[in-house]
Amino acid sequence: MSNVRTLDRQQVVTDRGGSLQRRTPGEWVLFAVAIAAGIAIFAPFGLIILNAFKSTQDYSSNGPLAFPSSFSLQAFLDYLGRVNYGQALWNSIAVSVLVAAIAVVLSLISAYPLGIGRVKVSGIVLAVLLIATMLPHEALIYPLFYGAQATGTFNTIWSVVIVFSVLQAAYGTYLISSVMGAIPKELIEAAQLDGASRWQILWRILVPILRPSLSVLVVFFFIWTWNEFYIPVVLLSDQSSQTIPIALSTLRGQHNIDITVLNAGSLLSLLPTLVFFLLFQRTLVRGVAAGAVK
């Protein structure tokens, strides 16, 4: 086995992808295992799609595993009748875009004195920010709930935008400052000699260097904010301000809802995420792979 392996590897090196004939039965078994795992993980998505397009009668007579006997959009219409999906989609986009933009700028600005300036308290500031990212949201939620009401931001997207801009920036600052720490000092010193101000150095020299890290952060801030649940479910109790996951969750416990409607709602709710995933798959995987993000 080991000798065959070594030979195969040489062949792969000399002839990429041309080693088709030499796959052993054991390798085919492992291949089948990998495919089976993929099917198992995808199965829930497949089931949702399968049942969202059924009529209620079709579902109750043929069950969840059968193909739809006829193609029906009734479940989608029912869901759209219960939840203001357009509003929720708009709220989700607005919240996520604003948070991603604000948090990434805030991360950049805050990381500057820590990663480049190396101010005396850098270590403490970074430790405090790291602790903030670990803090369970239940330890903030009641005062935030209270504070949002006091400032009139309760039931508006602004409460959530402010909270998550800071929480995501706490993480982003930590990350960007460590990337900044790896930038050669000579670069900054040369710019200083040329008479560039701190502000100019940040935007003209550091931002272009940091662009890959910043773009990964934007993508992740966007998707994390989009998916957030605990804080939005408390702060956004009115339909006019709810994000997509929160709007879907208002159906929880309503027993008079058809299963097909729940499926249609789930499908509509995961659709934007899916589109986002397909668009940014590389960035997402690269970001996670770099160990950059949680």
Binding site: I223, N227, F229, I244, L248, S249, L262, S269, L270, T273
Partner: peptide
């Protein structure tokens, strides 16, 4: 990448 609320409903 699924919103956890949506995953909860699916399951």
């Amino acid at each position: 990448i699924l919103p956890i609320a949506v995953a909860g409903f699916m399951w």
